[in-house]
């Protein structure tokens, strides 16, 4: 059960960080919180593969690097296949007795563009082949690195620079792709959703994902203050609202079993805790236009969508 792993933050906080300060991600960015917590969840030697994106770019502006773990950025769409090669070569070198480490954790960090869109094929291939690695999607719901363009991870109604809120079309006209469900459909040993706000839950999931034998996938929500249009101090609050409204439920799929975790489990047990999705939308400038009378129906549509997914999740987890 997810409650077994405990992290003593007072001890962990004394250690030298594996992701170093001096990186140039925006103030208030959730991605470095996700990366640092993930790296904190394992004591084993770690190799990081990073898809092209904000995290990759802002942590390795030559001649500087923020990574105190071995790290490789190959390209945008191939983080999972790069990890496949690393995992395979470690196996091969072990067979020859030419590899020093008993276990090495391989962690991929990739954004929504590199996962939902351009990297989906490479991810699916690596999941199907069963490589032993953990893929962490930090989902900021648009191409933030290139200046806030819509991706397969952008939610309905959201303003982006390629789904602008115009006079005729009010933001993105499609829902978010159910990326974690796509990972589950591969029947890999471990899939979970997480946010940095629910940090203990996230770190436990990282540990589980690393401990299973085979591929693991964690979909972490990564609010972007620049792209979502909120104050830099609100990053964690926005995560909490995403979970409290069931816009982004916390769950895990482990060896064929579904389970709600952390705050989402509490909401399932006490439905009165569930907030309207409006609470999540209204704190973000990217949804501002939805509050005009003529677009109000979109908020209702988003609420219906959120409710349907939540109900489905309650069924899958056996709560309903």
């Amino acid at each position: 059960m997810s409650g077994k792993i405990v992290f003593n933050i007072r001890e962990l906080a004394k250690r030298p960080p594996k992701l170093l300060p001096g990186h140039r991600l925006c103030a208030g960015c959730a991605a470095p919180i996700i990366a640092k917590l993930a790296l904190l969840a394992t004591d084993r030697p770690t190799i990081v593969v990073n898809a092209t994106g904000c995290l990759e770019v802002a942590t390795t502006i030559f001649p500087y690097t923020s990574w105190n773990v071995p790290w490789i950025h190959n390209a945008f769409e191939n983080a999972a296949s790069t990890a496949s090669g690393i995992e395979a070569v470690i196996k091969a070198l072990k067979k020859k007795g030419k590899y020093k480490y008993e276990n090495v954790d391989i962690i991929v960090f990739a954004g929504d563009g590199g996962t939902y869109d351009i990297g989906l094929q490479s991810l699916s291939g690596a999941l199907e082949r069963g490589h032993d690695f953990l893929y962490i999607l930090y989902d900021n719901e648009a191409y933030m690195n290139t200046g806030i363009q819509r991706s397969g991870g952008t939610p309905l109604g959201a303003w982006t620079t390629t789904s602008p809120a115009g006079r005729v079309i009010p933001g993105k006209t499609q829902h978010k792709k159910p990326i974690a469900d796509i990972a589950v459909a591969h029947r890999i040993p471990y899939v979970a959703t997480a946010t940095p706000a629910h940090w203990m839950d996230f770190m436990r999931k990282v540990r589980k994902g690393l401990d299973v034998n085979g591929p693991a996938f964690i979909h972490a929500l990564s609010p972007c203050d620049r792209g979502w249009r909120f104050d830099t101090s609100e990053t964690i609050e926005v995560c909490k609202l995403a979970v409290d409204t069931c816009y982004f439920p916390l769950w895990e799929f482990e060896n064929g079993e579904w389970r709600l975790t952390d705050r989402s489990l509490a909401i399932a047990r006490n439905p009165r805790l569930k907030k309207p999705v409006e609470e999540f939308l209204k704190v973000q400038g990217r949804f501002k236009h939805l509050f005009k009378p003529e677009n109000r129906h979109l908020i209702e549509e988003i609420q219906r969508h959120v409710d349907a997914i939540w109900e489905d999740l309650l069924e899958r987890t056996g709560i309903k």
């Binding site: 007072r10 300060p21 103030a27």
Partner: peptide
């Protein structure tokens, strides 16, 4: 209260905890 939530959430590893 030394709960260290600030340390956990700091995106810039700028909260220092010396024990």
């Amino acid at each position: 209260t030394r709960c260290l939530l600030c340390w956990v959430y700091c995106p810039d590893m700028s909260i220092v905890w010396d024990g």
